[in-house]
Write a protein that binds this DNA or RNA. Structure first.
Length: 786
DNA sequence: TAGCTGTAGGTTTTT
DNA sequence: CCTACAGCTA
């Protein structure tokens, strides 16, 4: 019909044009789901539905931003509410705060705030933690909240021994949060769900206002989220959910697969649309994914198919250890870039745990390959940033006890553990926030004269800061930093060899504040800023605008796609993770996670595992994941290492001519042979993953791929490499032992040793602070003339 | 009370 | 490997 539906497939158009009544979109990976959702919103607006009647809920800000951007292209400047579940609840709770005993300026505790509060609650509840841990108690309480279980209910029904302790802590913890005018992440959902349940008029008002609700990634909703969505779709059941049971990977966070599996039962007259055609991946990749996920029992059968042209075989590759895996991947990326058909942004490296990115980082850095780690929380976890944030939190919400405890002696001002303990006791006894207790320090007999004076000084400081609460964020921050003499404090407490500079981080934080000021010119933005910071997530750090290799967990990768993907460390105890192996439900979730990782890939995929994995500093033997046995190995290119030869690292270097022909030259290629044949390689040298002449060129469909050049000089080849890698063009021969070089990060240094040939030419360089080893062809170093 | 040092203990995924 | 914290000294 109109422009909005004209370039959609029949199934997609069907979903887009369904407006009234419940709609279930089962969308396989790469099936154009976001397209459907955004076009559907545009279609609704075109049909006369008012923008404020629509709310689209996602799980990450990243997904919401993407949606907003794409809707904006189809229907510009329409105030449709799009955002995360947590943000949605946070905003609603601001309005109805008083109904649940909070003030409108309540704070959102992050994970570490909650942990601190939890410890305090455990102490106050007087329970013994000898048979459990604060983490276990926190997990039990979190679980309860996700299932909408109140402290009262939990204490009645707690049967398991661990839960009994948690049930005792739970009410104390909640009371302390209430006193602190704060909520934790789970509370955002929990409080709002209860609010809707206990206040019929609020529920029906919101149901009436938000007539059209969309939920993305519905398979990841927990009971609280289910209840919220349900409550808002009673009188106007125009609820559209999209999801894929095979991509449910948040069971550990309380996500209930039944929400999507039973959607058709919950909502009569539901319209169900299945998007099964995949537009993202090659048939090879899709086959691997499909074979894997078929091993799950608890799923809805789905037929994944694609009309995409056939591509390269999926690589299943073994490495000697994690370091060789990292080097091998970095070399592979370099090779593919040099071959000219890829750039850094095309690659993603995915793993089960954040800790696994370390060695990869190192290998990429040594080659000067630009990368980004999707781990957005990292910045806000830094001590100096948390300190400043705590001040801001306390200014915004004087009852924020966790912030007070962090801030009262930072920078050190003589208020120690004992004083703090006395303040806390007084606060607990009077059920008042600790800042209030500090204000009344003169009434606390146990405090020494000196302590009273010091606390009084802090209160005066706080009052001075408070006056600035309504200034711009930038002014407030700068005033704060000056007032507490933060920079001198950082200077005197930062150890000499610290590799990252806290003062630079503070500057970056100010920049973030300035940026926020510009985006929010009108309102007093402190509260909004703090909310935004509290609700950022790891995945939000992903920047597709910069041209970098992306390192991320498979959880963070959900919803994204990349031309070339590496899934690393597919080993027993890692994927499936040790703690998920014994339980069939959890095991299936691990399999889904692997499925998510695989289906991120568009054209090229390598799955790898190592024989040894360094864990906790020590190398331990690693067993291949059971999932690897479920893949169609006879359709994949399987590459294994032959153990013995690995001890001859230096020896086989000489087997190869002093050029880079291992990348390009057919003669140096170990032909993979027909698909399915297992290659046995001597070690981690670079070879093409497939016989390139045998496969169609995916990247320049219309341009015939030139036959590989017979031999390329190092210099010429390196120049290409250097251009791609944006590093210098110095010939390798110019680097000698004793040469002085400059590195972008480490400064000037001297080459103390040189080994290897060609792309493996490696220099050990002594910098002022550290000694580093680089492959010359890739490193971001330049020769300093003497 | 500040600040250092050594050690014991724990290791997933994230809003 | 990394962090949290106990125990020490000034």
């Amino acid at each position: 019909m109109d422009a909005i539906t004209k370039d959609l497939t029949a199934a997609q158009a069907e979903a887009v044009q369904h407006i009234d009544g419940p709609l279930l979109i089962i969308a396989g990976p790469g099936s154009g789901k976001t397209r459907v959702v955004t076009h559907r919103i545009a279609h609704m607006l075109h049909s006369g539905i008012r923008p404020w009647q629509i709310a689209a809920l996602t799980f990450t800000n990243k997904a919401a931003d993407e949606m907003r951007m794409r809707v904006n292209l189809l229907a510009p400047n329409q105030p449709v509410w799009m955002g995360t579940f947590h943000r949605f609840c946070a905003q609603q709770l601001r309005r109805y705060a008083s109904m649940i005993g909070l003030s409108e300026n309540y704070s959102i505790y992050d994970t570490s705030d909650s942990k601190a509060a939890m410890k305090r609650a455990i102490a106050a509840a007087g329970v013994s933690t000898s048979h459990t841990s604060p983490e276990a108690i926190a997990a039990a309480i979190s679980n309860a909240k996700n299932r909408l279980i109140t402290p009262e209910i939990m204490s009645q029904q707690s049967s398991r021994a661990g839960d009994t302790i948690a049930a005792k802590v739970y009410p104390v913890y909640q009371q302390q949060l209430l006193t602190a005018n704060a909520v934790d992440f789970d509370d955002l959902l929990f409080h709002f769900a209860r609010l809707l349940r206990e206040n019929p008029e609020v529920r029906s008002n919101l149901d009436e206002k938000l007539k059209y609700i969309m939920v993305d990634e519905y398979q990841d909703t927990n009971l609280a989220q289910y209840a919220i969505v349900r409550a808002l779709s009673v009188d106007h059941p125009n609820l559209a959910v999209t999801g894929d049971p095979d991509q449910s990977v948040y069971g550990w966070r309380g996500a209930d697969l039944n929400n999507i599996l039973d959607f058709e039962k919950d909502y009569p007259n539901v319209k169900t649309v299945r998007l099964e055609q995949n537009y993202r991946s090659t048939p090879e990749i899709l086959r691997v994914a499909d074979q894997l996920i078929r091993h799950n029992r608890r799923r809805k059968q789905k037929n994944l198919f694609t009309d995409n042209p056939t591509g390269e075989a999926v690589v299943l590759r073994q490495f000697e250890d994690g370091y060789k895996e990292a080097d091998g991947i970095a070399d592979e990326i370099a090779s593919q870039m040099i071959a000219g058909n890829a750039e850094p942004r095309d690659f993603a490296i995915m793993c089960r745990m954040n800790a696994l990115t370390r060695s990869i980082e190192h290998s990429l850095r040594n080659r000067g390959i630009p990368y980004q780690i999707v781990n957005g929380l990292e910045f806000y976890q830094r001590k100096e940033i948390k300190d400043l944030l705590a001040y801001l939190h306390l200014i915004n919400n004087p009852a924020h006890d966790v912030a007070l405890q962090r801030v009262i002696n930072t920078p050190t001002r003589g208020i120690g553990a004992k004083t703090l303990e006395r303040l806390q006791n007084f606060a607990d006894a009077h059920r008042i926030p600790m800042l209030e207790a500090a204000r009344r320090a003169s009434e606390i007999d146990s405090l020494s004269k000196r302590a009273k004076t010091l606390v009084g000084t802090f209160i005066k400081l706080y009052d001075r800061l408070s006056i600035k609460a309504t200034a711009t964020l930038e002014d407030l921050l700068r005033y704060l930093i000056e007032e507490i003499q933060f920079v001198p404090y950082l200077e005197r407490t930062t150890p000499e060899q610290q590799d990252n500079n806290p003062i630079a981080n503070v500057d970056e934080f100010i920049s973030a504040a300035v940026e926020f000021d510009q985006m929010h010119p009108e309102d007093g933005s402190l509260e909004a800023f703090l909310e935004q910071v509290a609700l950022v997530s790891d995945t939000d750090a992903f920047e597709d605008s910069n041209n970098r290799v992306t390192l991320m967990t498979m959880h963070a990768a959900k919803g994204l796609e990349f031309p070339r993907v590496f899934v690393i460390a597919v080993e027993d105890n890692l994927l499936p993770h040790r703690r998920s192996k014994d339980d069939e439900t959890q095991l299936e979730e691990e399999r889904r996670l692997f499925f998510v990782g695989i289906t991120r890939a568009e054209k090229w995929l390598q799955i790898s595992y190592a024989k040894l994995r360094s864990f906790r500093g020590e190398n331990q033997p690693a067993i291949p994941s059971m999932f690897l046995g479920e893949l169609p190995r006879d359709e994949m290119q399987v590459i294994e290492v032959k153990g013995q030869r690995d001890f001859f690292d230096d020896a086989y270097d000489d087997e190869y001519p002093d050029s880079w022909d291992l990348v390009q030259e057919p003669a140096a290629v170990t032909d993979s042979g027909p698909a399915g044949q297992t290659d046995v390689l001597d070690g981690p040298r670079i070879i093409p993953m497939t016989d390139q002449s045998a496969i169609p060129d995916l990247y320049h469909d219309d341009v015939p791929q030139p036959k590989k050049k017979a031999k390329v000089s190092i210099q010429a080849e390196l120049k290409t490499a250097s251009d791609l890698l944006q590093s210098g063009t110095t010939p390798l021969g110019a680097y000698r032992e004793g040469s002085t070089v400059r590195h972008a990060e480490y400064g000037e240094g001297t080459i103390v040793a040189l080994t290897g040939k060609g792309p493996k030419r490696t220099a050990k360089i002594q910098f002022e602070e550290t000694e580093e080893t680089f492959r010359l062809a890739f490193a971001k170093i330049e020769l300093v003339e003497r």
